[in-house]
């Protein structure tokens, strides 16, 4: 009975065979699901980034502004559209409650995508392919990305960042190669 004190000697009660098998199988499975994380860093195509730098919001904003000025090709809804060359460093800025600029990328090319916030904690969710990363003020988070499918994507903020949070929706364009 689990509600009464147990008499000395309980430690020496043998464990049933079935229970031992269950624990053994569970342990093997536990070790397997733990190892999948480091193993995937070697064999997998999609992993989280380990590259990040500390940066102030002002400095991140300045970097993004310079990037926009260099590669701007147009404007949609008052947000700059930027077409950087393959292989370049590209910047996405989160601010209450807008993502800018609109990035225009090329399918199959590789970029170094910088994510940063100038105010609150935000998070990007690339819709509809469901890739999600946290965007934290004070950090320049660098993801090396290669868009594998062309089309127009949405950049949804999915970390609560104030009452206007749900309106924080940006756009990402990938042109076919």
């Amino acid at each position: 009975m689990s509600i009464y004190a147990v008499k000395p000697g309980w430690w020496n009660t043998p464990v049933h065979r079935e229970e031992k098998i269950w624990i053994g199988v569970a342990l093997v499975w536990c070790i397997a699901i733990t190892l999948i994380m480091p193993v995937w860093h070697v064999v997998g195509d999609q992993n989280s980034s380990q590259e990040y730098y500390r940066i102030s919001g002002d400095n991140y904003a300045a970097l993004t502004d310079a990037f926009i000025e260099q590669y701007k090709v147009g404007e949609v809804q008052g947000i700059a559209v930027v077409a950087p060359p393959p292989g370049s460093d590209i910047f996405l800025r989160g601010a209450q409650w807008q993502w800018d600029p609109i990035l225009k990328l090329t399918q199959g090319a590789t970029y170094r995508l910088h994510l940063g916030s100038v105010d609150m904690v935000h998070a990007i969710s690339i819709f509809p392919i469901n890739i999600n990363f946290e965007v934290v003020p004070g950090y320049d988070y660098v993801l090396t990305i290669t868009p594998t499918s062309a089309g127009e994507f949405r950049v949804i903020c999915n970390e609560f960042c104030g009452i206007g949070h749900h309106g924080m929706i940006g756009k990402l364009i990938v042109d076919p190669a």
Binding site: F127, R154, I156, H165, H166, I169, K171
Partner: peptide, 24 residues
């Protein structure tokens, strides 16, 4: 969630945003 619906969002379709989002 597996279709990309964000948590903690009053409106997932972007009525207050510059772009709209249409889900499956």
């Amino acid at each position: 969630g597996r279709f990309g619906v964000p948590r903690r969002s009053w409106d997932m379709n972007g009525v207050d945003g510059p772009f709209q989002v249409s889900f499956d």
